[in-house]
């Protein structure tokens, strides 16, 4: 059995199924990023594991022990939220050491440990500051120290950087990942940002419509997305009108003189999402071989003959069963 094993976790709010038989396996010391659009149950998943939300069905094993009947405070799990949620009436040291106070660690020892962990997150000497006196980044780092000090068997992170500005977010990621590895923490990291997910997780899982659609190494998901949502979140490429997906990686932009089947793709619509550019396009098989150029960067919606993709490159997509271009032939 893996260190963390979540088996067919299910949660329903009124008529909406938020989590539908979610399975997750994670080894000790590993970090997994869970990537999903907002409203796909990412936060509910973490809250259920933490015990804040009660699941309807399923099991959560941590180190072989089923924790699903335990209240949140008795689970060996710590959660970091979107906001730092530092207790405003406690200074940084008391905030950091709160988990130790709960465990009745004497106050002298608590202070010592708090200083140690504050130093670890790069905030040596911050012990007496109150949250109101700290910046957003500092607060989130104190929050991390507060989570790490209790040496959780599992750390859950719910988009902890989403309220920071983009530059700070980038530096925090690298740095938090480093601390997690140093401490050997097993962690689940939830985000809607592909770049962040790839950086933070050893493994990547995509959550959509309450289900884990695909999980594995980021590279695998990028090369062979098994679901349109996975494709849109964890890969780059083009969509057909019917939702079929052509990974960008599979498209060649070289000129070819070999005669082969070719499709003509007319871009119908361009949209921006998650910092990436996506195209919905209309596919048409051409009889002629056409020299190919990647014009994706300059494509304008409604333009007649905008992009050409050689048939050889599209075969890959047919292989995954995703491309249903036949229907588009005229």
């Amino acid at each position: 059995m893996a260190y963390l094993e979540i088996q067919s976790l299910t949660k329903q709010y009124k008529n909406e199924i938020v989590l539908n038989k979610v399975d997750i396996k994670l080894e000790r010391g590993e970090t997994m990023s869970i990537l999903g659009r907002s409203g796909t149950g990412k936060t509910t998943l973490l809250r259920t594991i933490a015990g804040i939300v009660k699941e309807d069905d399923g099991d959560i094993f941590i180190n072989g022990e089923n924790v699903k009947e335990k209240p949140a405070e008795d689970r060996p799990v710590v959660m970091m939220f979107q906001k730092p949620l530092l207790f405003p009436h406690m200074n940084a040291a008391d905030n950091t050491a709160y988990g130790l106070k709960v465990k009745k660690v004497p106050s002298g020892k608590r202070r010592q440990e708090a200083e140690k962990f504050l130093e670890k997150v790069g905030l040596a000497g911050f012990g007496d500051k109150f949250p109101a006196e700290c910046s957003g980044g500092e607060q989130q780092r104190i929050s991390l120290a507060r989570a790490l000090i209790v040496k959780p068997k599992l750390l859950l992170m719910d988009e902890p950087f989403s309220h920071l500005d983009s530059e700070l977010r980038r530096s925090m990621r690298l740095w938090v990942k480093e601390v997690l590895k140093e401490e050997g923490v097993t962690a689940l990291f939830v985000t809607h940002d592909r770049e962040e997910a790839e950086q933070m997780g050893d493994k990547l899982a995509v959550l959509g419509d309450g289900e884990i659609l695909q999980s594995g190494l980021a590279e695998e998901l990028y090369r062979r997305p098994a679901h349109p949502i996975v494709a849109s979140l964890a890969s780059e490429g083009f969509f057909t009108k019917e939702g079929a997906f052509v990974p960008l990686a599979a498209m060649s932009t070289k000129e070819t003189t070999q005669p082969s089947r070719a499709f003509r793709a007319v871009i119908m619509e361009e949209r921006q999402a998650y910092g990436l550019r996506f195209y919905n396009y209309y596919l048409k098989e051409e009889e002629v071989v056409i020299a190919l150029q990647d014009e994706s960067g300059t494509a304008v919606p409604g333009n007649e003959t905008v992009l050409y993709a050689p048939a050889s490159s599209l075969l890959f997509s047919e292989h995954t069963g995703l491309l249903r271009a036949e229907g588009e032939k005229k």
């Binding site: 809250r47 933490a50 015990g51 804040i52 209240p71 949140a72 405070e73 008795d74 799990v77 710590v78 959660m79 939220f81 906001k83 949620l85 207790f87 709160y98 988990g99 106070k101 709960v102 465990k103 507060r146 989570a147 209790v150 859950l156």
Partner: peptide, 20 residues
């Protein structure tokens, strides 16, 4: 959420009331 954060850190109902 403050209460949830405290619970996740191991604080029981009485402690959450007292501290948070």
């Amino acid at each position: 959420e403050f209460g949830h954060a405290a619970a996740a850190l191991g604080a029981g109902p009485y402690q959450r009331f007292k501290d948070i």
